[in-house]
Structures are given as structure tokens and as C-alpha cells.
Design a protein around this nucleic acid. Structure first.
Lengths: 145, 145
DNA sequence: CTTGAAGCTCTAGTAACTAGAGCAACTAGG
DNA sequence: CCTAGTTGCTCTAGTTACTAGAGCTTCAAG
């Protein structure tokens, strides 16, 4: 049984984040000490590690909630977890493609900035240039990277 | 002089987003018609295009505010804009590296999910596995992708 | 035994929007 | 000219995943 601070250090999670996870039901309500302080055992620590890894992989908390509920009833078929992972992969690939394009664009911008005045700075021109839209208008404001 | 709806369609921006940009000072307070409806001219439309492009490139609104203030006083040296762009490039590269790792991991997870039951599903095991931490603990909960 | 760190609860703030209520105004068809 | 129906207005509140602060209590070390 360890304190919330130790759990945080052990898992690389900030203390308020742990309390937040409890609040939104991702972690069970912690046992308390005499003096009302949270105490955690192995099981919860592992659950938190699971959550953090899933977050690092970009899963939103809702998806993690689903995964945890699968984990809690392990006799089910694996399909649901697979489906979640596949959906996640799709969105990761989309973000990757977008970011690669952005990187190219930024490099171009920086290369063209000639340390003159803003008046002829390509960084600003590039952003103002309408010709660079590759016509994904219609998507409207999407997640944006 | 066009309405907010037309401006939205012309720039691929949702109407509430335009009002939001005005509210937070990225766009000037719009002129109004007799009946109190917002009217926009070329200048504001270009400013909005600038903002949207910068957002697509991942610039946070604060950085965009800075860029716009540079644009408003174009006799300054270009350095500041360059600095902002370089910082942005750095963070894009970091996000890229992280995402590439995530993609590999997800692919591995999916490949190992053998459509059995959850009990032996690698998707969940992978997320629970502590051995996969490449020890970036200490960063605590960072931006996460 | 005392001091300072770590814990508690609660509220409010962050980014960048998005959604909804309830109402006014503009536009096109008949 | 009238009447729908769409678009616009303001305002409040919700979203995601946390983070920060106030004001207080409890714990661990010297």
C-alpha cells in the first residue's frame, strides 16, 4: 500500500492527474488510511500503467474506458480491442501524413526567411498565400494536426 | 462586404469559430449592417485565411497573435517570425517522432491480436506491459502525441 | 515535538473551439 | 406584399484532459 505521491513517481503521473482519473472513473475509489489519505496496491498501479501507456499511444480516455472494461471481463472475444486499436492506427496515420506535410512547409518557410524585414519575409507571406490551399475546404475546421 | 456565413464558406471556417476569433481579438470587431449583422471586407478575409493556414500548420493562437502583430508593423526585422517558425518546426518534429513510434506499436499490437478471447489478446497485454517503457519517466505527463 | 513536505477538498482555469436556447433579420417564392 | 425558411444575433454552458491555487490536515524526519 503506497501513497499517491509514490504512485505518481512510480508511474510517471502527476498527483492531480491520478485524482482526476479516479474522479472520472478510470481508477476505482482508492482505499483510505486512518487520516483519509489514498492508499494504492499493485492492482491499481498496474491499471494506471495501462492507462498511461494507452494515453501515450494516443487513445482518448473513452477508448481506454472501453479497453479497461474488456480487461475486466476477459472471457470476451478480442474483436472489440482489435477494432479500437485499428481505429486508432487509422487516426495515427492521418495525423502522421498531415504532420509530414506541415514539416515540409515549415522548412520551406524557414529556408526562405532571409533575415530581412518583415515586409519581405516569406514566413508571413506563406501563411497568407491562398494558392497553397490544396482545396481540402469542405472539411471545415478539422482536428488540425 | 459579405456576411459571416459567406466568409465562413469562402475560407472553410465555421461561423462560430469566426465569432470566437473576433471575441479573442484575432479578428477586429466587424462592421455591422443596419440590422446588426457582421459584414466583412477583403482585408479581414485575408486575415482569416492567414489565421487558418497558421492553425493548419499547428501554430497555437498565441503564436498567431504574435505573427499578426508582426504583419501589422512590417518594417521590423524578420527574426521574430523566423524564431516562431523554428520553434514550431521543433515541436512538429517531436510529434512526428512520437507518432511514428506509436504507429509501429499499434501495428505490432494488431498483428498479434489473434482473434481469440481477451484473455490472450496482445492488444491489452501490450498496453499493460511495463517493459515497453523506454524510460522517458521523469518527463511526467507530457503533451502525449 | 516541531517543522516542512505531502496530502486533502474544492473551485476555477487552460486551449480552441462546439452546441444549444431564444430571439431578430434577411431572402426567395408565391 | 407576405410569409416561410434560412441565416444571423447574444449568451451560457459543454467538451477533453488536465493543471493550478486556496486553505486546511496529516504524516515523517530530526
Amino acid at each position: 500500500m503506497i501513497s499517491i505521491g509514490k504512485l505518481g513517481r512510480a508511474t510517471g503521473t502527476k498527483v492531480p492527474t491520478i485524482r482526476y482519473y479516479e474522479q472520472v472513473g478510470l481508477l476505482p475509489e482508492a482505499e483510505r488510511s486512518e487520516g483519509n489519505q489514498r492508499l494504492y496496491g499493485r492492482a491499481t498501479q498496474e491499471r494506471l500503467v495501462f492507462i498511461r501507456h494507452a494515453r501515450e499511444l494516443g487513445f482518448p480516455l473513452d477508448a481506454i474506458r472501453d479497453l479497461l472494461s474488456l480487461q475486466d471481463r476477459p472471457a470476451q472475444p478480442c474483436m472489440a480491442a482489435d477494432t479500437i486499436a485499428r481505429a486508432q492506427l487509422k487516426s495515427v496515420e492521418a495525423r502522421l501524413a498531415r504532420l509530414r506535410a506541415l514539416k515540409t512547409e515549415l522548412e520551406r518557410m524557414i529556408a526562405q526567411c532571409d533575415h530581412g524585414t518583415v515586409a519581405d519575409c516569406r514566413v508571413i507571406e506563406t501563411l497568407a498565400d491562398h494558392g497553397l490551399c490544396q482545396g481540402d475546404h469542405g472539411t471545415e475546421n478539422g482536428p488540425l494536426a
